[in-house]
């Protein structure tokens, strides 16, 4: 795993679990991995409402919001979060989603505006690179 030295302007990422599901092993592992890769990670934790996630993202000026969803409720949750971000004019924040996500739902998530989807089993380096890429895009670099 690359443990890149922290650049002058590292991506800021909020990792959170929306909804009621509490299986957080994946979210925590990804939070550690992104931090080890030199990003600034804010771990939002469990049971976050979409309103709370958007508010934290604003307050912490993050470039990327990473959601972990295992319950199967990824479509309604992402729909609500994208609406909330639009309402707050925060469309410059990229949203990536991981968890138990069937392939058949990936197109629908992209259509909602989700920048990248990482179903369970995605190797960590792929997630790290993906988050870097979408963060760069948001920073306009």
């Amino acid at each position: 795993m690359s443990s890149a030295t922290r650049g002058p302007n590292p991506p800021r990422v909020l990792v959170a679990k929306p909804g009621l599901d509490g299986h957080d092993r994946g979210a925590k592992v990804v939070a550690f991995a992104l931090r080890d890769a030199g990003m600034e990670v804010i771990y939002g934790g469990l049971h976050q409402t979409v309103e709370k996630i958007a508010a934290t993202a604003l307050q912490e000026s993050v470039d990327v919001i990473g959601l972990s969803i295992m319950s199967g409720a990824h479509l309604p949750i992402c729909r609500r979060l994208m609406e909330e971000l639009a309402r707050r004019e925060m469309t410059d924040v990229a949203v990536v989603v991981g968890g138990v996500i069937p392939r058949s739902d990936m197109a629908a998530l992209t259509e909602l505006g989700v920048a990248a989807v990482y179903p369970g089993g995605t190797p960590l380096p792929e997630i790290i690179e993906g988050v870097r890429r979408v963060a760069r895009r948001e920073k306009g670099a």
Binding site: G19, L20, S71, G72, A73, L75, P76, I77
Partner: peptide
């Protein structure tokens, strides 16, 4: 409202 999308799911 917090149960939306989760009722009977898991």
């Amino acid at each position: 409202p917090l149960a939306e999308g989760e009722v009977g799911r898991v």
